[in-house]
Each structure stands twice: as structure tokens, then as C-alpha cells.
């Protein structure tokens, strides 16, 4: 099937079937490496993309469901994004594999006013797993960016 996806502000034509998940289409056909597959069941958040500004799991999103929506990946955030800067300032990463998903999730939390306390931040990030265990610094980074 031919689909037109709006990715990071530009229209991209792709060839994707319903059994193709958005993350694979973005990686294989759009050439983006920010969204990543880890668990493959929507649990861990390394495949997070924003769909009309809301985080979703790209690894289980059938590609046609993204039609007509604005898709934002880490590559689509502005260079001076304050969440990115805060993650960097707070050294809130190790291997970095989960970090684009963390940043996008935090971006949405902050935009919607859901990062008002550490408790709320932990809750919002609960579905984004980091095996290096950088959570403490990530929580600090989100807290700082929210201020």
C-alpha cells in the first residue's frame, strides 16, 4: 500500500502494509534511527514517537494508523529543545538507546503540564525502560526542563 506520512514536518511517501509497524517504516524507508525496537510489545518505550504531539509505541502501531497525523521523532525536535538540553546538562543518559523515547515522552509531559512533581514525573516515565539505570538523572533532567 502507498501511504503518505507526515514525518517531522515533511510529507514522505512510503510503501507499507498493515503488518508493517510504524517504527520499521521510519527506520527502513524514512532513514530515521531515533525510534528503536527493543521489546516489540509496546512496553519499553525505545520506539516512542509523537503522533499529533502524543507519545505512542511505534513498534506496535500498524503503519496505516499514522496516516493523517503529524509524526515527530527525536530528529524532528528543534536544535535548541530545552528537554534535550536539560538531558545533556544533567548527564541523563548512558548508552542512549532509550533516550530519544524518554525525551519525547518528557516533551509531552511538560507540554501538557504533567511534570509538576517527581511523583508525577516518575509516573509519566514509568513505561520508558532504561537498563543502564539512569532514572535518577533522567527524572532530574525532566524536573529541571519543566521549570
Amino acid at each position: 500500500m502507498n501511504l503518505t506520512l507526515n514525518v517531522n514536518g515533511r510529507a514522505v511517501d512510503v510503501d507499507a502494509e498493515p503488518h508493517d509497524m510504524l517504527v520499521d517504516v521510519l527506520r527502513d524507508q524514512v532513514g530515521l534511527t531515533g525510534p528503536r525496537v527493543t521489546c516489540g510489545v509496546g512496553l519499553c518505550g525505545t520506539c516512542t514517537v509523537l503522533l499529533d504531539g502524543e507519545p505512542v509505541s511505534g513498534c506496535i502501531l500498524m503503519a496505516p494508523l499514522a496516516q493523517g497525523k503529524e509524526i515527530t521523532t527525536i530528529e524532528g525536535l528543534p536544535e535548541d529543545d530545552e528537554v534535550v538540553a536539560s538531558f545533556d546538562r544533567n548527564h541523563a543518559f548512558q548508552c542512549g538507546y532509550c533516550i530519544p523515547g524518554m525525551v519525547l515522552t518528557a516533551r509531552d509531559m511538560i507540554d501538557k503540564g504533567h511534570a509538576c512533581s517527581r511523583e508525577e514525573i516518575r509516573e509519566g516515565l514509568g513505561g520508558n525502560l532504561c537498563r543502564c539505570g539512569c532514572y535518577l538523572k533522567i527524572i532530574e533532567a525532566v524536573e529541571e526542563a519543566a521549570q
Binding site: G40, I121, R122, E123, N128, L129, Y135, L136, I138
Partner: peptide
């Protein structure tokens, strides 16, 4: 898989 095998999440680290 990560549904049946859990690893720690941000929700688990408040006491650290």
C-alpha cells in the same frame, strides 16, 4: 519477553 520478565522502571527507584 519484557512483559513476563520485568526490569526496574522509574516507578521503582524513589527510595534510592
Amino acid at each position: 519477553n519484557l512483559s513476563d520478565y520485568n526490569i526496574a522502571s522509574a516507578l521503582d527507584v524513589a527510595s534510592i
